[in-house]
Amino acid sequence: MRSVTELPPASKYREDDLPALMVRYQKSEAEAVEELVRRLSPRLLRFLAVSEHIESDAEDLLQECWIRIHRSRHTYRPLEPVLPWLFAIARHTRLDGYRRRRRRESREILVANPPEMASGIPLTPGGESDEFDRLLASLPESQREVILMMKVSGMSLEEVARATSSTVGAIKQKAHRAYAKLRLILNNEEK
């Protein structure tokens, strides 16, 4: 087993050619669309799924997210980082999806007692995802999305600040609070 100081960087997804792909997408090159969807959908799906819990909802949200990305593609500035732009849109898609679901559920309760909703369907096979989701679920939403963007999408503090319309200082503060909580949880589990 490798030592903790020799682990690979969290930013395994850092890809320098995403801005060039976005520019080609703006020029309406079909290959660029295919490549972007293929490369970015897994990350977006992971991000959208964490609070949705239901795979079909997350997939619907992913489609909605890509529609919004498509409609907003003119707002991407060439040479700017792609991930903050992308996740700013994804973040609001997720928020709108959450609000929509809450409205739908509140209406359903008024009519009749709804059947229990399926929850926690893993988006990836195996227990690794469950464990990851469970730890993330223990964090408040604002801290969860910061950890998710940094850890899963390999975004820097500044990129997360851009995606969340926040400041780097505020993101650091949220990350530090999340670390404190995660330390306790991870340590208690070991006991």
């Binding site: 682990l7 959908s41 990836t124 670390y179 991870l186």
Partner: peptide, 16 residues
Amino acid sequence: KKLYEWITQESPPGEA
């Protein structure tokens, strides 16, 4: 140590 391991280990991406 546990926190650092968890943060730096590879995360499961979604599967579209």
